[in-house]
Write a protein that binds this DNA or RNA. Structure first.
Lengths: 357, 357
DNA sequence: CTACACGATGTTAGCGCTAACACAAACAGA
DNA sequence: TCTGTTTGTGTTAGCGCTAACATCGTGTAG
């Protein structure tokens, strides 16, 4: 064996100093109620004096459970996910659990590696982003028999739990909103859809709404752009130049939309008089730019909080009321698009989008 | 004992299926070169067939080391730290290490809890933000005898390793830059300095530069504001209204500065003609707003990358050339401030700031 | 006064893996 | 041929902790 590091304080050292057995120390630390006041005091003093920090690796092996929860997000650069992580962190910190974070970079293979690593750490539960996973990832998760929460999605069959909203519905609703403001020729700038079911659902929502509402729709009204202000600016210029008839451009995220807005400002393109701009996410900046960005507010923090709550509940053996939690959304009308017109006499728009395809 | 979970595949199951001993399986997975091709193939097939995932908790206990590195950042909401984490993640992912992330919310007590939890997980190394830690945190770290990297700072005595730049020097340099553009009355909006040595160093840099350069300096030229566009907007309005003589306002981060710039836009305050604005960080948005924001570019990603590289090197037993790595910075002149004037005949400004106080 | 419950603490036996050493077979050099 | 070395694999003994059961003392009811 690896010779043990003699300098490391073990539970045994604390026990000797306090004049009790190791199990009593273990109990004093984990279930203080089971140890009498006086003994506990002695033990805590010994802990203090030695600077003892319990070895959770050994504890995890012996008890067959850890206080670690793994979470995989596509990227940490997008502040969207930062809010979700904050939601998780707040709950897990209060529950004394550790968050093991990994970023997949929108790669299913990397997600698979991360899931394997987290299962290797014997994480008590896993939080993933989206509903698309490799076959092997699914196999791992099924065999692991731990709570798994897929976030930012609610449609389809969950592996276990699911917390989010319908990207399809939101996107559909935004197009409906723009249509109700009188826009008939609406362009769409998608995020890259590769290995990103949320982006793909937003694209579908746009297409189906455009069709259902009888808008002018051409494939050339669509573009795809990676997540950055710069890409938003570039794709916007390309789009308005090649499709001058467009009345509004709807972007799959606020960063692209704001990039476009700032570019329009530079080029003297009047927003919303010449063309409307809409985003998706309602980031802080969306209400600060001039004019303010019409967008969709999403329950970013809530997704993380609820996901973590479902997990802590499940781990404590409490039943959860529902395996799928839809947290909804809210269209935010601001100055980058014309305000909606008062309802015409016969509102022939579908009342609500279908729940995906 | 906790009865073992019979459904969990162990190394023994793989070994039986492959017709070898467990140690051979262990070696095949960790040091493939030590096992002959044919045996390894048999073992890998058995791994595949059973869906075996090595129990790193058991492995960590037996070997007395883990592939986990802990990192504590103040907040994940600030995209600044996101870049640093990306730097770490890229290196650790390539090295097959796991990142255990915690957010302290600028609380030394919370940092202490996180450090204790991470040491409890027997993390192989720790990455902290800043140089200010509680007494107990320092005691933990000294006893732990693992590599510890403090980031975003280089001054003073490190616990072990340190990667960043001098916030004092950067701030000093920015004020010097503004002065060289002819600004004499420069306001400063600090981030909250409580438990934030970087913010405090930036404030000191501003004050000392103002004094050294003979600028007009009044305590009422200073404000403090929490990290958000909105706070930047509000504090800017307050400052220009109560101190109308101000020629420029220098913000301790770009988010505050951009919030101010957008507010100025709304109120028709001409930037930079009426008043100059400068930031700190060079976020993506800084080059997109109109006019572009004068700011300081920091090696955000590099800090994370270098910190992680120092750790992987140290863990592999390679010596590191230096315990402290200063990654420098770069002033970025854009449109929110007047351009620097050509050097006057007698440049009596100090050539370089002192390395802190 | 005995029997029994209960609360507090201790003893024992692993959890699944790896370090160190052991050993057998194959090979090389004298 | 013998010896030493190298290579591949196995045996043994934990790593530090906790679950389960054991034990001991005290209080309480009959």
């Amino acid at each position: 064996m690896a010779k043990r590091d003699e300098t490391q304080v073990r539970m045994e050292d604390v026990a000797k100093l306090a004049g009790v057995s190791v199990i009593t120390v273990s109990r004093a630390l984990r279930q203080p109620g089971k140890v009498v006041e006086q003994t506990r005091t002695k033990i805590m003093q010994a802990v203090e004096q030695t600077g003892y920090i319990p070895n959770l690796v050994a504890g995890g092996l012996a008890s067959q459970r850890t206080n670690v929860v793994g979470a995989v997000i596509p990227t940490i650069t997008n502040s969207i996910f930062a809010d979700t992580i904050r939601g998780m962190s707040d709950v897990f910190a209060a529950a004394g659990m550790q968050l093991l974070l990994g970023t997949s970079g929108y790669s299913l293979l990397r997600e698979e590696e991360l899931v394997a690593a987290m299962l290797g750490q014997r994480a008590s539960a896993l939080i993933l982003t989206g509903a698309t996973h490799s076959k092997r990832t699914r196999a791992y998760l099924e065999r692991a028999r731990i709570p798994v929460v897929e976030t930012w999605v609610v449609d389809q069959r969950p592996i276990d739990l699911r917390v989010g909203f319908s990207n399809f519905d939101v996107s559909y609703a935004m197009v409906r909103h723009l249509a109700s403001s009188g826009y008939r020729r609406i362009g769409f700038v998608s995020a890259p859809v590769k290995a990103n079911d949320r982006a793909e659902a937003r694209l579908r929502g746009y297409r189906e709404a455009a069709r259902d509402l009888g808008l002018t729709y051409k494939r050339s009204y669509e573009r795809q752009a990676a997540f950055s202000f710069r890409h938003g600016a570039e794709v916007f210029v390309d789009l308005v130049e090649s499709e001058p008839a467009l009345e509004a451009v709807y972007f799959a995220n606020d960063i692209l939309a704001i990039g476009a807005l700032l570019e329009a400002q530079r080029r003297g393109i009047a927003i919303p008089d010449h063309i409307g701009i809409a985003g998706f996410d309602d980031v802080d900046l969306a209400s600060e730019v001039n004019p303010g960005l019409t967008t969709v507010r999403l329950p970013r923090y809530e997704i993380g909080r609820v996901a973590a709550e479902l997990i802590t509940k499940t781990l404590m053996g409490d039943p959860v009321p529902s395996k799928i939690v839809d947290l909804g959304f809210q269209i935010i009308q601001r100055g980058t698009t014309r305000p909606p017109r008062p309802e015409p006499d016969a509102p022939k728009l579908p009342k609500r989008a279908r729940a995906s395809r």
